[in-house]
Lab assay of single mutants.
Amino acid sequence: LELTLRVGDKTWHFKDVDEEFVRHLEELLKRGAHEREIEEIIREWLR
């Protein structure tokens, strides 16, 4: 999967994204996660 995600003024483009990561992001967005929380999840995933 490829994913382009825009949060606030930042845009990330990922290739070979894990479906579990996408589901986790979807859940965060559904519950109205704040920009900082989403950025933290992305940084963790990139490690």
Rank of each mutant, 00 (worst) to 15 (best):
V22M: 06
E35D: 11
F21E: 03
E27V: 09
E2S: 11
E26G: 09
E27T: 11
G32K: 00
E27L: 09
R43K: 13
L28A: 11
E26K: 12
D9P: 03
E2K: 06
E2M: 05
D9S: 07
R43A: 12
V17I: 10
R23T: 09
T4E: 12
L25S: 01
V22N: 01
L5H: 01
W45Q: 05
R31C: 05
R43D: 11
L5F: 12
T11R: 02
I38K: 02
H34R: 08
D9A: 05
E44A: 08
H24Q: 12
E2H: 09
V17N: 08
D18F: 03
E39R: 04
R36H: 15
T4M: 07
L1I: 11
F21M: 05
I38C: 02
H24D: 08
L46N: 06
E39Q: 07
G8K: 02
K15P: 05
D16F: 13
L3T: 05
K30C: 07
R47W: 11
V7Q: 01
E44Y: 05
E37M: 06
L46D: 08
L28Q: 09
L25W: 02
E2L: 05
E19F: 15
E19Y: 14
A33I: 10
E37A: 07
G8H: 03
K15S: 06
K10Y: 10
K15T: 08
G8V: 01
W45P: 01
L29I: 15
L29K: 04
G8T: 01
G32V: 04
E37T: 07
W45S: 04
E40N: 10
L28K: 11
E39C: 04
G8L: 03
E20M: 13
L5G: 00
G32A: 05
I41G: 04
R36V: 12
W12M: 03
D18R: 04
L29E: 03
E26H: 10
R31Q: 14
E26F: 08
E44I: 05
L25F: 01
V7Y: 07
D16Q: 13
E44S: 05
E27K: 10
I42E: 01
R6A: 14
L46Q: 09
H13S: 06
D16G: 12
L29V: 15
R43I: 13
D16L: 15
R6W: 06
D16H: 13
F14N: 00
T4D: 06
W12Q: 00
G8R: 01
A33T: 14
V17S: 14
D9R: 03
T11F: 08
R47M: 12
W12T: 00
I38V: 11
L1T: 12
F14S: 00
K15W: 08
E26W: 08
H13M: 05
L46Y: 11
V22G: 02
F14K: 00
E27I: 08
T4N: 06
K30R: 13
E40M: 10
G8Y: 02
I42S: 01
I38L: 07
E35L: 10
E2P: 02
K15Q: 09
L46C: 10
I42D: 00
V7E: 01
L29T: 08
E39I: 07
T4C: 06
E39H: 06
E27Q: 11
L1A: 09
D18Q: 07
L29Y: 07
E44F: 04
R6V: 15
E20K: 15
K15H: 09
K10S: 08
V7F: 06
E19Q: 14
T11L: 12
H24G: 12
L46F: 10
E19K: 15
K15N: 09
L25G: 01
D18E: 10
E19N: 08
H34C: 05
I42C: 00
E19G: 11
W45Y: 15
A33N: 07
V17E: 15
V7M: 05
E27P: 01
A33D: 06
L28N: 04
W12Y: 15
D16M: 15
E35A: 09
L1N: 14
L5Q: 00
A33C: 09
D9I: 03
D9L: 04
L3Q: 02
L5N: 00
R31P: 02
L46M: 11
R47N: 13
F21A: 03
D16A: 15
T11A: 04
E39M: 08
E40Y: 08
H13E: 05
K10Q: 09
W12H: 02
R6D: 12
F14E: 00
R31Y: 12
H13P: 01
K15I: 06
R36E: 14
K15C: 02
K15Y: 09
K30Q: 11
W12E: 00
T11V: 15
A33R: 07
V7R: 01
E20T: 12
V7G: 01
E2A: 05
I38Y: 04
G32D: 05
T11S: 04
E40C: 05
R31E: 11
E39S: 06
L5E: 00
V22H: 04
R36Q: 15
L1E: 13
F21N: 02
L5S: 00
D9Y: 02
L28P: 01
L28C: 03
